[in-house]
Design a protein around this nucleic acid. Structure first.
Lengths: 216, 216, 216, 216
DNA sequence: GATGAATGAGGGTTCATTCAT
DNA sequence: AATGAATGAACCCTCATTCAT
C-alpha cells in the first residue's frame, strides 16, 4: 500500500520524463492540474491568474482552454482530483490490518505532513470557500459537498468500527469524524502560524483521543 | 455582562437613531465597517467590490474613501474591529465566576451562534487567509497575528487555570487553545455544509472535553 | 517707480495682515489667486487640485466656488491677474527716461529673476498651454491672446522707438519683440535645467543685441 | 541625406503595407508611438487618455498594455523616440559640407516646419514639463535631460566650429546653442498664435545671427 | 457667507477569454 | 493541436462640484 505522501507526490512534482507527446497528450491535463493545485493552494482562487498556471505548466494560455472550459471549471477539477486521491488513500488505510486508533493516527500524521509540504491547508481552505457565495463558488459547492460527505463517511466508518471494538466510546460517528478532520487542520495550522515550534502531533492526537478533561 | 451575541449586534445592525449628523459622521465609519464585515465575510476579499460595500452602507463609492485609505486598509480595519470585539468578550467571560469548563462552554456556544448568524466563519477564515500571499495579505498578516496571539492567550489562560483547578489534565495550554478554537469552527462548519441537521453542540464539546477514547 | 520684482511680491507672499474680515472679504479672492498662481505655475493645470489651492489659501474648498465658477475660470483669472501686473510693469518701464536698450535690459533682468523665484516660466508656460486643445484651454486661449498681444505691443513699441533712435537696426518690431520674450524665457530655462551654472544674463542679452555673427 | 521633414514622416504616417503579422507585431508599437506623439503633443500628458491613444492607433485599450507598462512609460517612450529622431537628424546635418551658418539655417527651417505640422512645439513643451513636479514627470526629467544635453551639445559643436572658422564671434557656445533652440521655438510660436501672418523665418534668423543692435 | 462631507463620473489598469494563425 | 496577441468588461481610485448645515 502506498502511503499518503507518496500518492500525493505525482501531484507535487513535475514529470517531464514524458516519452511521446504530440497526440492530445493526456499528460498535459495532469500537468495543468498538478501546477494549478500548488498555485491555487498557496494563492487562492482570485489571486491566481490563468497565466500563472499556464506558465507553471509550461504551456500557452490558450492551450489551457482546450482542456478546461474556464477558470472555475479548472478549479473544480483540481479540487476533485485532490479529493479523489485523498479518498483513495483513506480507503486503503481503512482496509489495513491495524487498530482503528492506529488508522486515525496514521491518517492524521500523513495528512498534516502533506499540508505542510503544500504550504496550505488547501483541503480545508476549499471547504472554507464553500462558504463564499458567487457564481463560481456556487458551482463548486455541490461537487465539493459530495466529496466531503464521502471523506466524512470513511472516517465515520473507522470510528464506528472503533466503537464496536470498544476502542472508542459511543458517540455520533459523523460528528466525531468532522471533529477529527478539524483536528488535522489544527495540526497544520499551529505549525503554520508559529513555524518555529513544530506542533507535537502526539499531543494533538492525545487531545483528540482523550479530551481535555481530567479523568477521575 | 453582555453575552457575545449581544456585543456583536452593534456591528451587525444599523443604528440610524442618531440625532444630528453633518460633521464627518462617526456613524458612517461604523456603518461601513458593519456592512463590510458582512460582505467580506461572505464573499471574501477579492469578490467583494468597494461598490458593494458602499451600496450596502447606503453611501457613494467616493465617500468610502473619505474614511479609509483604500480597500486593503478597510479590510484590515474590519478585521481589527472584529477581533477587538471578540477579545473584549473573551476577557469578560474570563473574569466571570464559573468553572473553567463552563467558560469554554459559554464561549463556544455564543461563538458558533454568532458565526452562523454572520453566515461565515470569518474569524477563522481570516486566519486561513494569513496563508495566502499577496501584497494585501502581507499587510494583513502581522496585524492579524497579534490579535490571534491574544485570543489564543486568553483561551490558554482559561485552560491553564482549569489545569490548576484539576478540571483539566496536564497538557500544553496553547495547543489545547488552538484545538478549542478549531472545535468551535467545526461547530459552525458542520451546520453550514449540512444546514438541515444542526450539529449538536453538546456532543461536539463533549468530544472536545472527554475525547473519543473509551475510558477504562 | 516700483520695479518688477517688487510689484510681483504681493502675489508671491502671503499677506495675513488683513484688518477686518467678515464681510465678503475682497482679500479672499486675492489670496486665492496668489496661491493658485504659485501652485499652477509649479504643478500645471491638471496636477493642481482645487483642494491644494483652497488649503494653501487657508479657506474651505466650497468657499473657492463662491468666488470662481470653476477650476478653469480660476485658471483664467490667475493668468489674467498675472498678465495685468506684467503689463502694468511694462508700461511703467516704457515711460522711464533711459535708452531703449536699457529698458529691454531692465525688463529682462527683472523678469528672469521673477521666474526663477516662482520656479516656473509660468508666463510662457501659459502661452504653451494655448497650444493645448481642450474645453478648458479653448476658453483660455482667446483671453490670453489679448494679453499676449498687449505685451508684444509694448515691447514692440520700445523696439520701434529704438529703431527711430538708431539704437536698433530696421527690423519688424513685433517679431523682434517675440524673440525678445523668448530670450527671457531662455534665461530662465537654462538656469532651471542646469541649476548649478547660473546663466550669465549678460551673455544672453549680448547675444540678443549683437547676434551670433562675426562683425566685419 | 534625408531632411528632417522626411525623417519624421515615419512617425507621422501609418504604414499598413506590412505583409504578415501575428507575432507581437513590431508595427503596433510604432503605431502606438506615432499616435501617442500626436495626441500627447496636442493635448498634453494629463488630458490625453489611454483610450484616446488606443483608439487613434486602432487597437483596444488592453492591447496598449502589452507594449507599455503604463501611461507614464508610454510617455517616456514617445519622448525618447521623438528625441532620438531629432538627434539623428542633427548629426546628419552636422556632417554635411556647408558653412556652419547654413547648417543652423537648415536646422531651423526644417524644425519650425515640423513643429507647425505637428501643431505643437512638443519638443519644447516637453522641456517645459521638466518643470512640473509629479511622480510621472520626475521619472521623465532625467531621461529628457540626457537628450536635451545631447541636442545642445551638437548645436554647440556647430557653433564652436563656426567660431573657429571666424563665421561667429567668440561667445560661450552652449548658451548660444540654447538661444538658438529658443529662436526656433519663437518661429513656431509666432506662427501659432497669429496663424495668418506666417512668420518670415528669414527675419527671425537674421535677428539671431546679427542681433537687434545697429552696427556702427 | 462659509464650510467640508458627500457625490459620482471618469480614467488607469488587470486579466479571463477568444480566435486567427 | 497549440499558440499568444488582442480584446474589453470590470474594478479601484481621484477629484471637481454640490449642498445641507
Amino acid at each position: 500500500m502506498t502511503d499518503w505522501s507518496v500518492r500525493i507526490n505525482h501531484l507535487t512534482k513535475n514529470c517531464p520524463k514524458n516519452k511521446k507527446m504530440r497526440t492530445k497528450d493526456k499528460n498535459i491535463k495532469e500537468k495543468i492540474i498538478e501546477n494549478a493545485l500548488k498555485i491555487f493552494a498557496q494563492e487562492g482562487f482570485f489571486k491566481t491568474t490563468v497565466d500563472d498556471i499556464a506558465q507553471a505548466a509550461g504551456i500557452a494560455k490558450g492551450t489551457l482552454y482546450l482542456y478546461f472550459k474556464d477558470k472555475a471549471s479548472l478549479y473544480v477539477n483540481v479540487i476533485e482530483e485532490h479529493f479523489k486521491v485523498g479518498i483513495k488513500y483513506l480507503n486503503e488505510v481503512q482496509k489495513e490490518k491495524m487498530t482503528n486508533t492506529a488508522k486515525l493516527q496514521k491518517i492524521a500524521d500523513n495528512w498534516i505532513d502533506y499540508m505542510i509540504r503544500l504550504k496550505s491547508s488547501f483541503f480545508m481552505f476549499s471547504m472554507e470557500n464553500v462558504n463564499l457565495s458567487s457564481k463560481i463558488m456556487k458551482a463548486v459547492k455541490p461537487i465539493m459537498n459530495v466529496y466531503l460527505e464521502k471523506i466524512v463517511d470513511i472516517i465515520a466508518r473507522i470510528i464506528e468500527q472503533g466503537i464496536k471494538a470498544r476502542e472508542f466510546r459511543k458517540i455520533e460517528p459523523r460528528i466525531a469524524a468532522v471533529h477529527f478532520l478539524n483536528t488535522i487542520r489544527t495540526g497544520f495550522f499551529v505549525t503554520f502560524i508559529t513555524p518555529k515550534r513544530f506542533i507535537d502531533k502526539k499531543i494533538l492526537l492525545d487531545l483528540f483521543f482523550k479530551g481535555l478533561k481530567q479523568r477521575r
